[in-house]
Amino acid sequence: MNSARTWDIYETGTLVVRKSMTAEWIREALSSGKITETDLIRPSGTSEAWQRISEFPLESLSTPVGIAGRPESHGAGVDQDLLDPDAEIDLDPDSGANEAPVPQKAAAKDERSSAPREALPSIELQALQWLTEEDPEPVKPVESQPEQVVAKPAKVRKVERETPLLEPSVELKLEPAESSEPRLSFDESEDEEDDFTLSRSKVEHVEEMDLAAMVDIAFQLVLFFMVTASVTMIKSMELPKPTESTKPAAATAPGVGTRDRNELADEFIVVKITSDGDILVDDEPIPSDRLLESLRAVRNESGKTGMLLRAENRTKHRLAVAAYDAASEIGLRIAIERETSGP
């Protein structure tokens, strides 16, 4: 019989089996929400079928003797009279379960013979049904969460009265400090109605949506758009469009058009790049890595506002871009001279 003193709890939410839990632990866990009534229970050390806690005779948790016989006795002693709120429940061993005197204290119950104990679960089941279906103050769906929480201590308190195993501290913890709701008053009539039950009202079975998957997908989308957005950008330099011209030695720049070479030389620093890669700034040869410094020096000296690139056709494009880049660096306008004849 030792093995029947504890129960295994199978938490369907987390797929965890808790073994050899005591009756007190189950009660506390139920009232604190650690386990729910949809979780499964069975006596420890047996291979009985798992049962939902809500269908399990909860009263028997405190009186584990003869648990194995309980499920068969389910509903055996049900009488429709018990559904009547005014009906009295008989726990007297002599009169059986079908008639209904006033409920007795649990302490007295434990001392009874096995006969009434077998009938007990069905009585509790009926009382539970009546409470959930005909509760004069059912928890309305519009009620806010704190009010639903308020309902719990009322039930816990009743359990405590029946089974002194439960510590009073549990009740204190659950009680909201600031609440002034009428439900908090725990008037005696309400206490009488809620006897025999540990179950919470059905409204509390809130199915929680798993948001993890949605967050994953959202992050994936963010990542995807971030990466694709950067792919479609091409780094480029905007250059002035060449203007149409048939005149040889024409140059192009915004608002410049075709001009005479000498005219341009007053306004632009002329950078000449030969096909061999030699660079001349205003006809002064410079090393190719000193282009930026030379341009800056000439600009500061002459006050010219633009750079005219005069490169041979066979000059590498890379060198021309280096000249554009240097001109952009120090804020010079860019003009490009087009060589119409061959090198």
């Binding site: 780094k235 330099m237 494009h317 280096a322 880049d325 952009s328």
Partner: peptide, 10 residues
């Protein structure tokens, strides 16, 4: 060719 200056174009 490489260049320091330049803007991203879609």
């Amino acid at each position: 060719p490489p260049a320091v200056h330049g803007v991203g174009v879609q």
